[in-house]
Structure formats: C-alpha cells, structure tokens
Design a protein around this nucleic acid. Structure first.
Lengths: 198, 198
DNA sequence: CCTATTTTGGAGAGATCGTTTTACTAAGGG
DNA sequence: CCCTTAGTAAAACGATCTCTCCAAAATAGG
C-alpha cells in the first residue's frame, strides 16, 4: 500500500516537543521544526496537517510522556505528602537539564491569545488535570493526618498551584541556582509543619 | 526651532502601553502601534528610534503610571498589612476593565527569549523592585505585630510573589469571575490569622 | 515487472514583519 | 524668505513566516 514511513514518530515528536517547549508556539517556525525533526516541511504537513495540529500532537505527547507519569506517581504514592513534594520538585526544579524549561502546558497560558482555539481548549483541559492532581494529593494528605484538619485544603491546593505557575512564569527572571531553589523551598514550606494555615 | 509636536506624548504612550499589555511584545506590530497611537510609522521611528526603544519607553511609562503609585501607596500605608493586601488586590483583580491584563512586567517574563536584551534587563530590574516592595511590606507587618514572629517573613514574601506571578500567568486559564476570585482569596489567606506558617 | 499509493524534499507563492527612504505638507524662529 | 523640525503617506527593502505544489523516490500488492 505505498511507501512506508522512514522516521520514528515518537522520536520526531519528542524533538519537536523540545522545540516548542523552549520557544513557545508563536516563536517556533516550521523551519525550526524541520531542523529539529530532520524532516522537511512536506513531510510534516503530510503527516500532521499544519502547525496547529502539529502543536496539538506535541501537547498530547507531552502529557503522555512527561506529565502523566508524574501525576500517576503522585497519586499512587503511599505517602501522599511525599508524592506531592516529588511532583513539585520534578516540575519546578531545573533537574539535569542545562536550562529550566518550565512546563509546556503552563508556558502556553500566557500566550493563549496567539494559540488556535483548539490548542487553547486542549491546554486548559490539561491544566485542569494538573490542578486536580494537586488537589487530590492535598486532600489525601489531610485525610492521612499529614496536614492539619484546621487547614482549608482547597485553599492550600490552590496556593500550591499558583506557586507552581508562578515559578514557571519567573523561570527566566529568577533563574540563578539560588533563587530558583529558594522559590522551590518557599513553595514546599507551605506543606511543612502540618501546614497549619488555619 | 521648527514645528512643535502635535500629539500628547503621555496619551500616545498610554495607548501603545495598552497595546503591548494586551498582545505582548512579539505579537504587537508597528501597524498595531500606528492604529493605536494614531501616528504614522515615520513619526514613531522619528521619536523613539525603533520597536525596541519604543517598548522600553512604554515600560518606563507603565512603571511611572501604574506600578509606582501602587508601590508607593503600599509602602506609605499606615497599616502595613492593609497596604500589602491593597497592592495585591489592585494587581490581581480584573477591576473595572473588561479583561484582566495581568502585569505588563510579569507578562514579559515568559517571552523573555523574544525580547531585546535591553528590555530584558529593564524588566528584571522592575520585577526586583516589585519583589522588594512586597518583602518590605511583609517585614513591616511583622515588626508591627500583624504577622507572627514565628513566621519566616522572607519565605512568606517569596510565597506572595510567586502567587502573584502565578495569578498573572493563569489569567487566561482561570479567568472566570469565580476562579479568579478564589485564586486571589487563596493568596490573601497566607496573610490571615497572623500567617502562622512556622 | 507493473502500477497504485505514499513519503520525501525542495522550490516558491503569498503574506507579514521591521525598517528605511522618498516626497510632500505644516509650523515655528531668525 | 530660509532653515529647521514635525508630521503623513507611500513605496520599497530584505527577512521571515505559513503553507502549497510538484516531481522524484520508495514500497506495497497484484
């Protein structure tokens, strides 16, 4: 039934994902994607249809390969609080990469106006999933006695989400090893000492 | 000494400020600025030199007209905690505008890579000023007994800054009246009950 | 081998971008 | 009247962008 594809779709998606992740949607050109993937524009348009659909495919790939495993680990963790802290650390810390890229989903929020509507809806759905994971972890930690009963866990979850978004937004501003670490510590501090906010 | 300027520079800067504020640097074209200001590109280039310098002038104008008054009011407020809360409310709440625009300075962080270096440095300097204002307010509130002595005020200030950035980042995502309000309330909750975090 | 089908790569259309230039009008001061 | 500065409108520049098109290449089934 015709010629077979020569490239590995997962590996190509990963390379394009990194490009979008670093540069954002509007600041990534088809030429960039050609260079990153090694494919020509003809192939890209043949496979995905256009930049918008390509971006959507990248987001799905990002969720599958990056976010979902983290969320699963968080939800399945025996120790709810530890699971949440691990999730935050993985999302907030630069890790072994030379540059902290933030979160592809959250990065997209600020440029939401430049995004095609379909991508915007997709992004929002993913963000809601992330927020709910955080909320679930906080609820479970409170039920397990790791967070004081006096704490309003809905508010605490919202605070955590906000700080996570804030750290992502500020990644280019406070990118020194020190300030990045301090912001991460400040976020975690909310969860210490049984989070006796109320 | 030649013909005098026909337009009011402050009013022109304000119109361009709103355009940059809504669309960001990269997504604002010279044509947009022509339409917004009513001037032709010739005049714009004659007065400011180019898009980069124009953006810098807009940032200075934004600081002078929007941020500085807020920071001054916060620092001069008799009640330190009230002053800080007012500052947060003004920056986080949509107010009377139809759409919440976030903060021009913070908006620029996520697109920092697209900005000219001069603008990036300017933005960072402004952000540092904002962070210090928040920190000063927290310190003063603690000295005045409004925040528990057990609280690590540096960490609390960082948390506040992070939430502020987070709210700005998420403005298009959680833009419903309800979730925006809830995020604002969650940020303020840190300052309630004498902020007995530690 | 043949043919239908798909992939691939490159050229280029068509649009928009920031910027410069040109030609022209308008207004102030000597 | 001249000179300088301020302003508009338009054209053109080279660069870059998304996307289309088409011929060549490769591979499946008959």
């Amino acid at each position: 039934m015709g010629r077979t594809k020569e490239f590995d779709e997962a590996s190509v998606l990963k390379k394009m994902m990194l490009t979008f992740w670093q540069n954002g949607f509007a600041n990534t050109s088809i030429k960039d994607l050609e260079n990153a993937s090694g494919l020509s524009s003809g192939s890209l348009y043949n496979c995905y249809g256009g930049k918008d659909e390509l971006f959507a495919a990248v987001i799905v790939h990002y969720m599958n390969c990056v976010v979902d495993p983290r969320m699963d680990a968080c939800l399945r963790s025996k120790d709810a609080l530890d699971g949440l802290k691990t999730y935050l650390r993985e999302t907030m810390e630069p890790g072994n990469k030379s540059r902290y890229l933030g979160c592809l989903i959250m990065n997209a929020h600020l440029n939401a106006r430049q995004l095609p509507t379909s991508a915007r809806n997709l992004i929002n759905r993913c963000q809601r999933q992330i927020d709910q994971t955080i909320e679930n972890a906080v609820f479970r930690a409170q039920k397990d006695g790791q967070i004081s009963q006096k704490t309003d866990s809905s508010i605490l979850a919202r605070q955590i989400s906000l700080m996570l978004s804030g750290r992502v937004l500020r990644r280019e501003y406070s990118s020194g090893d020190q300030s990045a670490q301090q912001e991460f510590d400040a976020s975690l501090a909310l969860l210490n000492d049984k989070a006796c906010i109320f």
